[in-house]
């Protein structure tokens, strides 16, 4: 991209050039620090090609016997985590809306920001010793870390609604709870359910990696096949994962579009 220096060509570089230069220097320093030299970079395509050739043919038998059950477990983890998060975040999203509960909202937002800061895999590191190796720890980790994000998104949806009907229910003598029931929830539910579904799509990917720390699912299988250099088996893991995630994304995306129409 050309940088226009029409105003003061003699004065030197524009700020865009300076930033680009800064990033370039930073990049070179970092690349040098991790030994990513031009030689290593040049060697890369050949290395990748060699390894990739080992991936063919995929061991479909292994796929059916070992990968498929692990993938199903990943889906179960993601689903349970999403359900836990959805149930916990719905009331929290209402309580976290500034427009409805100005005093409680700040506290709820603080809690959700904290829950959001932990990547699920770090939570899983703590849950595994607590509830034992396996999928249950994974579901809890996914659930807790999703609560934060879903609460935040839900509160934003609630804050964006038309508050008129809320006042109308109260003007008719309805309690605050009834105002939530008839004026808030009907306005926000489709968007909030769409966020749940989107989170489920993300959680499928998150649950797939949890196996790395022993929290169940397909990640552990991939790690083992690669560790013992069984590339045809790893190929089966990748193929099946891509396929299943694509299908789930498609179905969930179609439902989301219908909800929001």
């Amino acid at each position: 991209m050309t940088v226009r220096t029409t105003l003061a060509p003699a004065a030197g570089m524009g700020w865009a050039t300076q930033v680009t230069l800064f990033i370039a220097v930073l990049f070179l320093v970092c690349a040098w620090a991790i030994d990513l030299t031009p030689a290593a970079l040049a060697n890369l395509p050949r290395q990748m090609a060699t390894v990739l050739s080992f991936f063919y043919p995929a061991d479909l038998n292994y796929g059916a016997t070992r990968v498929w059950p692990a993938l199903l477990e990943s889906i179960q983890i993601a689903w349970m985590g999403t359900i836990i998060a959805a149930m916990l975040s719905l009331p929290l999203a209402l309580l976290g809306a500034r427009t409805l509960f100005p005093r409680i909202a700040r506290l709820v937002k603080l809690i959700s920001a904290t829950a959001r800061a932990f990547p699920e895999i770090l939570l899983a590191i703590y849950f595994v010793p607590i509830v034992g190796l396996g999928a249950f720890a994974g579901a809890l980790a996914i659930g807790i870390s999703s609560v934060g994000m879903l609460t935040k998104l839900g509160s934003e949806v609630v804050e964006s609604i038309d508050m008129g009907p809320v006042e109308a229910v109260q003007a008719a003598g309805g309690s605050r709870l009834l105002a939530l029931r008839y004026a808030v929830v009907p306005q926000v539910l489709p968007e909030i359910v769409a966020h749940w579904l989107f989170r489920f799509e993300l959680n499928i990917r998150a649950s797939a990696v949890l196996g790395v720390v022993g929290a169940g699912g397909v990640g552990g299988v991939l790690l083992n096949t690669l560790r013992y250099r069984h590339f045809e088996k790893a190929a089966a893991v990748l193929l099946l994962t891509i396929l299943v995630v694509l299908i789930i994304d498609m179905v969930s995306g179609a439902i989301r579009r219908r909800l929001l129409r």
Partner: peptide, 24 residues
């Protein structure tokens, strides 16, 4: 879309297998 289906750690495992353990 296919790039997006695989989580970050899967790519990390793949590249670790391809170019060896380490920051690259």
């Amino acid at each position: 879309n296919i790039l997006r289906t695989l989580p970050d750690l899967f790519w990390a495992m793949l590249f670790a297998a391809a170019v060896g353990f380490g920051p690259i």
